[in-house]
């Protein structure tokens, strides 16, 4: 039986490692940083209440929990928007930076953020999970309920689109 202390240590280590990635993942759907943090909080707390002895191999489930919480949030927002007759469509759109960057990386980061905004949601989701979530195609496929081939294709399409958008001269080969 795990002790409170060990559970406490585990979730803190998990938070230190994954919080920025989970936040980035949530911000695909939610433009407000504050709302995205709320979503991550709900998902993270729910996950650790259910799995107090979670090990790193269980961490992909956290992304699934964040995804579920984000979609629930959007449904709630959608109902609210319909009530308010606001036709905004949620996309990756925000005023705050998505990446922590050094000065020399800032231009690349801003270009990337704009390129990510233009990606179809299903491709962006795979790209974020693969690059910054560091998940395997198999894990992403399991998480999204798709085949590995589908996930790999979306990833390739996403990279190709980014190459074309970000710097066609530099990335001529797909």
């Amino acid at each position: 039986m795990p002790s409170v202390t060990s559970s406490d240590t585990r979730w803190r280590a998990c938070f230190d490692e994954l919080a920025p990635r989970l936040l980035l993942f949530a911000r695909q759907w939610i433009d407000s940083v504050a709302d995205a943090e709320d979503v991550v909080q709900n998902a993270f707390v729910r996950f650790w209440r259910h799995q107090p002895d979670a090990a790193p191999e269980h961490y992909p489930l956290l992304y699934a929990a964040v995804r579920t919480a984000a979609l629930d949030f959007l449904r709630t927002q959608g109902r609210r928007r319909r009530r308010e007759e606001d036709e905004r469509v949620p996309v990756l759109r925000h005023d705050d930076a998505v990446f922590d960057t050094a000065v020399e990386q800032r231009e690349l980061a801003q270009t990337l953020e704009r390129a990510l905004e233009r990606l179809p949601q299903e491709q962006r989701e795979v790209l974020v999970l693969r690059i910054w979530g560091d998940l395997t195609f198999a894990q992403i496929a399991q998480l999204l309920g798709e085949s590995i081939n589908t996930i790999a294709s979306r990833y390739r399409y996403a990279l190709s689109a980014l190459r074309r958008t970000m710097n066609p001269a530099l990335y001529e080969r797909v």
């Binding site: 039986m1 795990p2 002790s3 409170v4 559970s7 406490d8 979730w11 938070f15 919080a19 920025p20 990635r21 989970l22 936040l23 980035l24 943090e37 991550v40 909080q41 993270f44 707390v45 650790w48 209440r49 107090p52 705050d96 930076a97 998505v98 990446f99 922590d100 960057t101 990386q105 690349l108 980061a109 990337l112 790209l127 690059i131 910054w132 980014l162």
Partner: peptide
Amino acid sequence: ELRALRPTEASLDLRKRIETDLAGTGAEMV
């Protein structure tokens, strides 16, 4: 190049809120 970009850190407030939520459920944690 993409991997070299690090996502922004979560706020300290988020950590505190999670800490509060999980601390309030000690029974569930064991």
